[in-house]
Structure formats: C-alpha cells, structure tokens
Amino acid sequence: MSAELTTHVLDTGREGPAEGVEVTLQRLDGDGPAETIAQGTTNDDGRLNEPLLTESQMEAGTYQLLFDVGAYYRQGPSGSTFLETVPVRFVIDDANDHYHVPLLLSPGGYTTYRGS
C-alpha cells in the first residue's frame, strides 16, 4: 500500500457509512495557527474520493482532522445536536507509511483508531 493519508466515517447508529460529512485536514506544527491543507466530503461509502495526503504530499508532523458531524446529524434521522465538530489529533512519524484514521460515530459519542 502506498504512503498516503485516508479516512472514512461510519455511523454505528445506522450501521453503515456516513455520507455528507465535511472533513478538514490541518497541519499543527510550529507556533503559528493551524494550516488547512485539505478538505473533502464523505461519499456514499463514508470515504473521501481522494486521499487527504498523497505519497508526494506526506510529511512527518502533527495533524488534526476536523469532522463536521453537527450538520450531518441535524440533517439526518436522529436530529441529534450533541456533537458539532469532532477533532482528531495525530502524528505522522513515518512519511513513507500509510495512515488511515477512521471515525466511528453515533449521536452521543465517537471513537477513532489507526486503521490499515
């Protein structure tokens, strides 16, 4: 598998992918503000159509994914307003490796892990 950064969002309450979730990738290295470097919206499989970082864009550093789940839930069947934005901070320490950061989502909580 090539070096890249990918994600997907699964809605455990609906037992399937979460379509239409806005995802923003920010780089957090340095003393300055977070730098937005990629954005996308999950498709009907809960994935982005393109990697957030391709092999040529991969760099070691600290990153943050922001998942806009508030809009997803307000427009969905649950109508939940508890979660708004889910931030996931992580470190890429080997720019030659594949990083996959899934989000498992429910109206009242979430979990994440380093996937494969």
Rank of each mutant, 00 (worst) to 15 (best):
M1Y: 09
S2Y: 08
T6G: 02
T7E: 02
H8G: 05
H8P: 02
V9H: 05
V9Q: 07
D11P: 14
T12F: 14
G13M: 09
R14H: 11
R14F: 12
P17T: 06
Q26R: 09
Q26K: 15
L28W: 07
L28E: 11
D29S: 15
G32A: 07
P33E: 11
P33W: 12
E35S: 06
T36A: 15
T41Y: 02
T42V: 06
G46W: 11
G46E: 06
G46P: 04
L48P: 04
N49S: 15
N49H: 08
P51F: 13
E55K: 12
Q57C: 05
M58A: 12
M58P: 05
M58K: 12
E59V: 03
G61Y: 11
G61A: 14
Q64W: 09
G70M: 05
Y73T: 02
R74D: 08
R74W: 02
P77W: 13
P77G: 11
S78A: 11
S78R: 07
G79V: 00
T81Q: 08
F82S: 01
L83C: 00
V86L: 07
P87R: 07
V88Q: 01
V88L: 08
F90L: 03
V91R: 08
V91F: 03
I92Y: 01
I92P: 04
A95P: 07
N96L: 02
D97A: 12
H98R: 07
P102N: 05
P102W: 05
L104P: 00
L105E: 00
S106C: 07
T111R: 10
T112L: 13
R114C: 03
G115C: 04
G115Y: 03
